[in-house]
Write a protein that binds this DNA or RNA. Structure first.
Lengths: 347, 347
DNA sequence: TTGAAAGCGGTACCAC
DNA sequence: GTGGTACCGCTTTCAA
């Protein structure tokens, strides 16, 4: 079907067209369309009807220019190849739509340079607010860039030095210590733990949990049990698996992108046999429950409550947009340790 | 606590500030900043220096209002819980950034109503173009909405009736027929195939491939071998598995979200034993290679070239933005069948 | 090569 | 309650 005949010029109707059609002034038409209460019922009806008939859409650029609001919110993440972010983006977009906010995506591809590039692009776009989960949170350049930002910011599982902003943080520390406790109760003494580098909050959390957990529970704290990883390539899973075997650990708490963990599990089975878990190694994985369900036997898993994370992010963000000078809030998200058959008593 | 004091306040500098600082007019400053060649070298340098010193950022809303370009591109998908879309969004955002385009996300949550809602929101936002992979492509309401769109559109693996637009289509049909051929060569006659409903292109592809493949290869075309699925919930994997067993198929070609396939595999092992593949059932899965690698034995898999898909989408989109009236193009993406130990001769 | 000025399409203040 | 109008910041003729 061709375009409606009401638009002979091929251009969108403007507020002027609507006002003329309804026999009112631009001002009144605008009041109606922005929901101002100071309009007569009659005028309101005529304007709405005209807008409908002309298929009128407000020009967002013009409105933005005038109101200094773009209705755009940025989401900076390393990338969707880490499967935590997909569901969060879904939930977030849905929740923000209720506030007439749209989500602009920026994937930094796990690089600090990418973080800065995206932040610059967000700034240039005039976003109203942003959610930031940069690839690294110990970059002074990034911290400086964020400090100079005018827009509200919510940090997601990142802590930047000298930056005090609304944050949603994941309590990986408690989860790992709880996991260590569970394994210790089964008699394990040498428990391997994977950790990102210290320039990423999850890495610092894992490191701290290993240090404190082994101390509290009187476990072996041999440094070779703390396995440093980048999470960049699934192939790294092989190195992790080999390191676990080499460490002579009897149990392990491993986290990372699902693809990496999958590779790690395959390698562990190659090295330790099909019945590796829990006969040769007790295993707790941190990640998507999908992974645990897929394995044989099903893995004991620490999972992240995606819905609660998305809700928290959306809530903090909207609150900050509405009250730019309100108090800074931090939401700590607890993880849950789900049962599985991949852990057992020390052989 | 209020926002930190180190956050700059006051108004952003405008072009007027830059012009004044550089001792030129707004017009000249604008020419410099938009890269017009008709500016003296001296003026150019002074303007750029002033802009730098003032930390000037062009106001996108004002520019949009003037140029009628928003620099925003929409991506409508059912949701990231289908793991195909994450990597595509990553790649797409990266490629579009090179053209100064930002990606706006819209997840319809696998509902036709969601599709329409997002399309409306995209329209209201004044996007310059959009990539559409709606939840269903046999909705007349959606087709009508797309017809009335003024913005360039690229369809991703969807065909809407009466709509002839740039498209990136996945050749699932060839891949499934190839898979059937591979299994037929191993002696299999009863091969189950999963398929989405007929109101989604991938479903129609699978259906057609089953019909034509069984005919060409003289395979059993018992309707109980064609397994209808929605893909909405991972738990559906159990139904699929049970249906495969009930069909007495000796081989199967199964596709869907990774979580669903994972559930299906678990159930099949429950029903057929740990050594189900390929002893009791030869299996080819369509999806993320991750799934195949994770399984024991590794699965034969049909995988999708995410990079090529994203490139094609970005190319078509940018070409369409630059040449709104150019010829409509369709890009057909071939899949590859990767070897795995989950297929074997008929027992 | 440059500057003056006319809008782009809304919003919101002010006077009636 | 309504209309007139200044103005948001930038781009782009048009003259000089």
């Amino acid at each position: 079907m061709p375009q409606p005949a009401d638009q002979p010029t091929g251009r969108w109707p403007t507020l002027i067209d609507v006002a003329r059609e309804a026999g009112v002034s631009r001002a009144t038409a605008s009041r109606v369309l922005t929901g101002s209460p100071r309009v007569s019922q009659a005028a309101r009806e005529r304007v709405l009807e005209s807008a409908e008939r002309l298929n009128y859409r407000v020009n967002i650029a013009a409105r933005s220019l005038r109101t200094d609001r773009t209705g755009l919110v940025g989401l900076l993440i390393p990338g969707f190849r880490n499967d935590l972010y997909g569901p969060i983006a879904d939930e977030l977009a849905a929740r923000l739509r209720g506030h007439d906010l749209s989500l602009v995506l920026g994937s930094s591809d796990w690089s600090a340079a990418g973080d800065l590039r995206i932040l610059e692009s967000f700034t240039a776009r005039g976003l109203e607010a942003m959610i930031l989960a940069p690839s690294i949170d110990r970059s002074t350049a990034l911290a400086a860039a964020i400090t100079h930002l005018r827009t509200p910011v919510v940090l997601f599982d990142r802590e930047l030095q000298g930056i005090h902003r609304d944050s949603v943080l994941i309590d990986g520390r408690s989860a790992i210590i709880e996991s260590l406790g569970r394994l210790a109760a089964l008699g394990h003494q040498r428990i391997a733990v994977t950790a990102y580098g210290p320039d990423l909050r999850p890495g610092r959390q894992a490191r701290g949990a290993f240090m404190d957990g082994t101390a509290e529970l009187a476990l072996d704290d041999d440094p070779s049990l703390l396995l440093r990883m980048t999470g960049l390539h699934p192939g790294e899973g092989i190195d992790i698996a080999d390191a676990i075997v080499a460490s002579r650990a009897t149990a392990a708490v491993i986290g990372g992108p699902t693809a990496l963990l999958a590779t790690c599990l395959r390698r562990l089975r190659e090295r330790l046999g099909r019945d590796a878990f829990p006969d040769r190694l007790s295993l707790i994985a941190i990640g998507d429950q999908l992974l645990g369900d897929l394995c044989d036997p099903p893995l004991a898993m620490v999972t992240r409550p995606v819905d609660r994370i998305a809700t928290a992010l959306a809530d903090l963000l909207v609150a900050r947009i509405l009250h730019p000078t309100g108090p800074v809030r931090t939401e700590l998200i607890q993880l849950s340790l789900n049962p599985g058959a991949s852990i057992g008593p020390l052989p």
